[in-house]
Simulated assay, not measured.
Amino acid sequence: MQKPQLDQLLNAMWQDYLELNPDAQRIYNLFASHNNDQVINDHIALRTFQHPKVTIDKVARPFLAAGYQESGEYHFPEKKLYAKHFQHKDISLPKVFISELCLDQLSSQSKQTIENLLQYLDSNSLLQDNFCYSGRHWPLTLSTYQQLLEESEYAAWTAAFGYRPNHFTVLVNALRSHQTLQEVNHFLQQEGFTLNSSGGLIKGSPDVFLEQSSTLANKVEVAFDDTTAVIPSCFYEFALRYPMADGELYQGFVAASADKIFESTNVKIAMGN
Rank of each mutant, 00 (worst) to 15 (best):
N196G: 10
Q25N: 08
D7S: 08
S33T: 07
I44Y: 00
Q105N: 13
T265W: 14
P77W: 15
F86I: 05
K84F: 09
P22H: 09
N173E: 05
N21V: 09
R61F: 15
D226K: 07
L126S: 05
F253Q: 03
F235W: 06
V254D: 11
D259C: 07
P4Y: 11
H43V: 06
Y236N: 06
L127A: 15
A245F: 03
E183W: 10
A66H: 00
K84R: 14
S152R: 10
G162D: 14
F193E: 10
P232W: 12
S107M: 09
Q2I: 10
T180V: 07
L188R: 03
F193A: 06
K219N: 03
A12Q: 07
L142P: 00
A217S: 07
D90S: 08
I27F: 10
M13K: 03
Q182E: 15
L149H: 04
H167E: 01
L142G: 05
L181H: 04
S125V: 13
N11Q: 15
N21L: 03
S143M: 10
Y82D: 01
Y250I: 01
D7T: 02
Q87V: 02
T227I: 06
Q182F: 14
K84M: 05
D23W: 12
S125P: 01
S152E: 08
V222N: 06
N35E: 08
A258K: 04
S99M: 10
D122F: 06
S213T: 13
D16P: 03
G192M: 03
D207T: 09
Q87W: 00
N130P: 01
S110T: 11
L9V: 01
N273R: 05
W14S: 00
A223E: 13
S233C: 12
I269V: 11
R241F: 13
S152V: 14
G192N: 01
S125I: 10
L171N: 07
A270S: 13
V267L: 06
N11A: 09
E19L: 12
